[in-house]
Design a protein around this nucleic acid. Structure first.
Lengths: 340, 340
DNA sequence: GGACTGGTAGCAAACGTTTACTGTAGGGTG
DNA sequence: CACCCTACAGTAAACGTTTGCTACCAGTCC
């Protein structure tokens, strides 16, 4: 493991000079010495020790991303976006799948603190859980005390995300689109009530209904887990409950995919009998049959902007909050309401 | 940013004693001193500096995973598996999406070397590209010279994976299953010819044909990119070429999903007219209509075992190679060959 | 009573960098 | 010629740990 000391020795200079050449600082070094150092570094296959550098700076070129589960396409996209930004600066990205378990999340944050990660990006939504949030608050303070940047990409207990997505407008736009197709009874799969992002989306649904002049009906709203199984279960619950509806709007794509699968199993014609719409527009949405109508979220961009926001924080600028726009994508899973 | 020095001062002991308490080494410390140190650490919210520890050990508790693209469900699963293993040891996982670009891969490996990552897991397959492989060989040597463990999860230029999946047997089993349904003309979407893993899967296809007593026919094999667009394009090419076939076996699920989508667009009945089978069994496979028959790969386990293999390398044991078994999952996209 | 032993504790070096500070030489300026 | 400034080079301290070595103390054994 070659160190800068050996490079300096081979080049016949002090470690200071070697460091100044390698680090490409502006400090003046004679052309001859510079060349000798460069040659030596190449000959010895010298790679600087980031730990030593980090120790000195109390910060290493690493960003942690806390996600629910990297296996969830939503988060994979976001992480990729963070990576895109990071790669440009030679930063590395640490992925932390917390499964929304407060304990795991805390232990990840602690590890990131211990390695002096330059920034921590919370990709997922916060959970309304006083116990958890108190502990989280302590950790956030700790992170910031360590000089790390903290960025949220979803609403959380302590406020709005620094960089986020306009969930309310997005869902409202989808509801408007469905209403525009003649749907009057639009059910909603809302996900877990404790998840702040799910609440925002529910609010978007309500706003969409109001704007379309439709009557809210609590029996049309189903809560549950935020994944495909939750979507399937919600279908069963809705059908058991008996409310009539011709369209189903979902708080995310996984719910919609699960609902779609269950409806297909039950022999319900989509979109003939029921239109189904998702939210997030993960890449799978295009691959189902029928392809899923959804609301496109610029997830990769969200990640990249989150990274950039963090870097600006580190640079001392306090950047403005950003809400990225969404886009309704109508595909085969939605159609005009059948004339009743 | 509290250091162990402050903890020691508050506890009224030397840093050595504080370190021995915090580090939970076996070194004897009196109960009184131990308690004072613990109290001080808690009061100051002390978090050890992993950079300083790493500097001393020339190694930090971090594993890098080189993937093609974290957005590809195959790799997301593998990364999650690595995370599962790592979490148990309080290791962190760095995700590196190289897009199979040699230059990006090399720069990631260099960064991982610079931070003295304890291990690097290459999740994706190698590419038959002499230039690239020469440079990669240098980096692997560098990694090992740094004392890092190196694990491959797919075949690569320098040999078989330390922990892998039985691609040949897997595809052969699927071909056998299709043949068992009466299919005699089975086409194959093979992916990029330069990718070692694609070659293995092609070999599995050939072996499956031979074992089923079927005639190989080069016109039934389509190469292309390893994603959904590649699958769609391959369908067009096959249909333009005109060879008859009743079943389509794909070297991975993304190819199959793209093929399925294109066939649906073209109004071809799946599985009535053509059976379609994928490989990998990513979670989306269950969500398409019809649900995709595929070969289940224990991807998450692959990642976890890869991590464990790396840890054993670090511990000085030279563990045996492992080939994980696969499982054919028959779903709605495959059916008996129509009597011709 | 002296030597030894075992349990604790601390000193200080080492890991690989960066950088403030000091030093030196040479050239320009008054 | 004296002075100062600039360009370059080196010394050494500092970052926060861990750990080998030494030191102290109280028993214990002969």
């Amino acid at each position: 493991m070659t160190s800068i000391t050996e490079v300096a020795r081979l080049a016949g200079v002090s470690t200071a000079t070697a460091s100044r050449v390698i680090g490409a600082t502006g400090y003046p070094v004679s052309a001859a010495a510079r060349q000798r150092v460069l040659d030596a570094a190449l000959a010895l296959d010298y790679v600087p020790n980031a730990l030593a550098q980090g120790l000195l700076k109390s910060r290493i070129a690493v960003v942690g991303v806390i996600v629910h589960d990297i296996t969830d396409p939503y988060f994979a996209e976001v992480v990729r976006g963070v990576e895109d930004g990071a790669a440009a600066d030679a930063y590395l990205v640490i992925t932390c799948s917390s499964d929304r378990d407060p304990q795991r999340e805390n232990s990840y944050v602690r590890l990131l603190r211990s390695m002096r990660a330059a920034a921590v990006v919370f990709a997922g939504s916060g959970l309304d859980d006083p116990m958890r949030n108190e502990e989280l608050a302590r950790h956030l303070d700790g992170l910031r005390a360590n000089g790390a940047a903290v960025v949220h990409l979803s609403p959380h207990a302590f406020g709005a995300p620094e960089v986020g997505v306009d969930n309310v407008a997005g869902i409202a736009a989808m509801v408007a689109a469905l209403a525009g197709m003649g749907h009057r009874r639009i059910a909603f799969l809302a996900g877990p009530p404790a998840l702040y992002v799910a609440r925002e989306r529910l609010a978007g649904y309500r706003r969409g209904l109001v704007e379309a002049g439709l009557e809210p009906d609590a029996s049309l709203i189903q809560h549950g887990t935020f994944d495909a199984d939750g979507g399937a279960a919600a279908i069963d619950a809705l059908r058991a409950g008996g409310p009539e509806f011709t369209a189903l709007c979902c708080a995310n794509d996984l719910l919609a995919l699960g609902a779609l699968r269950r409806l297909t199993e039950l022999g319900v014609d989509v979109p003939g009998r029921i239109s189904v719409a998702g939210f997030d527009d993960i890449s799978v949405a295009r691959m189902t049959a029928p392809p899923l109508s959804s609301v496109r979220l610029p997830l990769r961009e969200l990640g990249r902007r989150g990274y950039e926001h963090a870097m600006r924080q580190l640079a001392g600028v306090a950047p403005a909050r950003i809400l990225l726009p969404t886009q309704v994508m109508l595909r085969g899973s939605t159609a005009s309401a059948a004339p009743s």
